[in-house]
Amino acid sequence: MTDDTLRSALVDYALRLGDTSLVLGHRLSEWCGHAPELEEDLALANMALDLVGHARMWLAFAGETEGKGRDEDRLAYHRDGFDYRNHLLVEQPNRDFGHTIARQFLHDAWSVGLYERLASSANPEVAGIAAKAVKEVRYHLRHSGEWVVRLGDGTEKSRAIMADAFDRLSRYTDEMFEADGVERTLTAAGIAPDPEELRAGWEARVDAVLAEATLSRPAIHGRQTGGRSGRHTEHLGHLLAEMQFLQRAYPGATW
C-alpha cells in the first residue's frame, strides 16, 4: 500500500464522517425555535452544535491530510451535493419530532459503536477526534433513545408516528455498514474498523430500546445507499442551498 493510497483513503473517510455529522447537525439546527418544548429546543440545538463540532474536526483533518489548501469552511461551503459523502439517512427531512428522533437514534446507535472503536485507531489524530466525540454521542444516544421509548410507548398517535418513522428510515441504515476500497484500506492499516463489525452492536442497541418502546426493527424494503459516493436523495440539494447560501453569495464573508 502506497502512502498516496492511504492518504487518499483517509481524506475520503474523514469527509464521509465529517459530512455525515455536518448534514445531521444542520438538520437538527432547523428545529431551532420550533421544537415542541423550550427545553427540547435547547437539547436539539446542543446536539446540533456537537455534531457541527465533530464535522469541523473531521473536515479540518481531511483538508490537512489532503494538503491542497482546503480548510473546513472551504469543504463545508464550497462543495456541491455530488461531492458530499454523508449517509443518506442523515439528509432525510425532519418531517416531525418523531421522525427527527428516530433518525437521530438510528444514527447515534451507529456513531457510538464507531467512535468507541476509532478511539483506539492506529492514527493518533483519528483516535483523538473519536475520543472527544464519543462522550458527546453517548449522550445523544441516551437522549434520542429516551425519546424513542417515550413516544413509542406513549399514546396511540405517538406510537404510530414512531412506527412509521422507523419504517421509512430503515431503508437507509444498511449504508452505515458498507465498505469499499476506502474502508478496506483503513481497516488493513488498523486505522478504522470494518464497518460490518459494527452491525451486531448497532442492532443490539437499537433492538433493546425498540423493545422498551414496544416497537420492533422493521424489515428493510427498498434498501437505499449511495451517499458515501455522492449519489444522494433529492433532499440534500435543498439543505445545501440553505446552508451554503451566505458563503456562496459572499465568498469569504466573516462576522
Binding site: 423550550l38 427545553e39 435547547l42 437539547a43 449522550y139 441516551r142 437522549h143 429516551e146 417515550r150
Partner: peptide, 16 residues
C-alpha cells in the same frame, strides 16, 4: 424547568 418526569428533568437541566 418543565419536564414529563424526573429523568427527563435531569436531561433538560443538563441541556439548559
Amino acid at each position: 424547568l418543565h419536564a414529563a418526569d424526573a429523568r427527563m428533568a435531569v436531561e433538560n437541566a443538563r441541556d439548559v
